[in-house]
């Protein structure tokens, strides 16, 4: 954790304020979306976590689109057509991520089959 720190110095902490939407439900959506969008100029931070200017612009953009009545999916698509899959912190299920999403189940299955012989047969 030491080091998340190092990057932080680059940014002062301007303008936290004036970002929140008045409607708590819309704001909750904005927060959730913010977790799923990567800050494009930072290193593996979401736009919620980043103090970078670019991330703030994105946070404001997300809120603006929400108040214009866009759906979550529309906003994610909007971001994705501009910045590619890279901007999605939760990668979409597609040919190059089948392994990523499938591996937990695959591993569970294979390891499960492998450990089965360790169980004693019920009848002895």
């Amino acid at each position: 954790m030491i080091a998340r720190l190092l990057l932080l110095l680059l940014f002062s902490l301007p303008a936290w304020a004036q970002e929140t939407l008045p409607d708590p439900q819309q704001e909750a959506r904005a927060v959730t979306l913010g977790e799923e969008l990567r800050c494009v100029v930072c290193q593996s931070e979401s736009i919620n976590d980043s103090q970078a200017d670019m991330a703030r612009d994105m946070r404001l953009l997300v809120r603006e689109k929400i108040s214009q009545g866009w759906t979550d999916q529309q906003i994610l698509t909007f971001a994705r057509t501009r910045y590619g899959d890279f901007i999605l912190l939760k990668p979409p299920l597609q040919s190059n991520t089948y392994l990523l999403w499938g591996l937990p189940l695959l591993f569970l299955g294979v390891a499960g089959v492998m450990i089965w012989p360790l169980f004693r047969k019920r009848k002895e």
Partner: peptide, 13 residues
């Protein structure tokens, strides 16, 4: 001025 066109172009800086 507000950087919106930049986001449309996928600008990172």
């Amino acid at each position: 001025d507000n950087g919106r066109a930049g986001i449309d172009w996928g600008l990172t800086g």
